[in-house]
């Protein structure tokens, strides 16, 4: 097991760095090109969410081995205002800002596992995993 890559997302460059870090892990994990593209796109959406809605946050990315499967897991955590209605936030087109409302709902479709943990005043943590086939 490699050490997880930890990155702080405090500006636009953080979103670019997040994409690059996740791409490199996805390549190491031998995800297919389409799987890599989906995972990196999801990471880009979630990194931007952490920056814009969470006021900045951290990304922790690692290769995981579980039940004989290998994949890339990425955790985005922010200490922002949190999400009051998680189900609503996962609806296509819903946005609290001026985005398109596809970041959360869309990135959920792009990965295999998606866990959203959030409460008002407690920040938001999103954990995504993409498994190699």
């Amino acid at each position: 097991m490699t050490e997880p890559a930890v990155l702080s997302i405090t500006g636009n460059n953080g979103v670019v760095m997040a994409r690059q870090t996740v791409r490199s892990l996805a390549q190491d994990c031998r995800l297919s090109l389409v799987e890599q593209t989906k995972l990196v796109t999801a990471a880009s959406e979630l990194a931007r969410n952490a920056l814009i809605y969470g006021g900045g946050g951290t990304m922790t990315a690692s290769i995981v081995d579980e039940f004989g499967r290998r994949g890339v897991r990425v955790v985005f955590a922010d200490q922002g205002p949190g999400i009051a209605d998680v189900d609503l936030a996962l609806t296509d087109g819903w946005t609290s800002g001026n985005g398109m409302g596809l970041g959360l709902s869309g990135s959920r479709r792009l990965v295999d596992d998606f866990v959203l943990d959030s409460a008002v005043g407690r920040g938001t943590t999103v954990t995504i995993t993409k498994w190699a086939r």
Binding site: L33, V34, Q36, T37, K38, T41, E45, D92, M100, L102, S105, G106, S107, R109, L110
Partner: peptide
């Protein structure tokens, strides 16, 4: 546009 990008865009909802 790369094929993987097109596939991802559709799944993303764009």
């Amino acid at each position: 546009m790369r094929p993987a990008v097109a596939i991802t865009l559709v799944e993303l909802g764009l």
